[in-house]
């Protein structure tokens, strides 16, 4: 079995995987970082989104071997020193979640969105969250949360 090595949330990690092991399986099963969720497993729902070398990607549609040598950030890597990331705080403040299942992927996509569009309008937010499906909130409070976070992240 091949060995894969990468940096996850700032820590160098490596492990034995099958060639076919998905990145999300490596994250959840080898590293026990179960905050990254598998919703659909068919590249549609975005619950598994993580950052790979700074860009948001669906970790269910990537082999662990394709992330060999990469810098990966998961939901567990957002809070720093016990302080929530501004995007997490904004979801909390705006009730941007109900059941919470889509939330890790939603946050990872939203952070990438704001990094690339520092002052997004509502249309941009809705378009750029196209790859994340939430069945609870109707997206309304998620959009509000991203708008709030964009202000705090920029400032």
């Amino acid at each position: 079995m091949p060995t894969v090595s990468m940096t996850v949330n700032g820590q160098a990690v490596s492990g034995e995987v099958e060639d076919r092991t998905l990145l999300v399986e490596f994250i959840r099963e080898n590293l026990n970082l179960t905050g990254t969720h598998v919703g659909c497993d068919t590249s549609q729902c975005g619950a598994c989104v993580v950052h790979v070398n700074g860009d948001s990607m669906k970790s269910c549609t990537m082999l662990a071997m394709q992330a060999n040598g990469a810098e990966v950030t998961t939901i567990e890597g957002l809070a720093q020193g016990g302080e929530m990331h501004p995007m997490q705080q904004a979801f909390h403040d705006n009730h941007g979640l109900q059941c919470g299942f889509c939330t890790p992927g939603m946050l990872m996509s939203a952070i990438d969105l704001v990094a690339k569009n520092p002052d997004p309008d509502e249309t941009t937010i809705r378009e750029q969250l196209e790859g994340n499906i939430c069945r609870c909130t109707g997206y309304h409070n998620i959009v509000k949360a991203v708008q709030q976070a964009a202000k705090t992240m920029g400032g």
Partner: peptide
């Protein structure tokens, strides 16, 4: 094409 995550890969 698709969504941002699909476009990133």
């Amino acid at each position: 094409i698709g969504d941002p995550q699909v476009r990133n890969r």
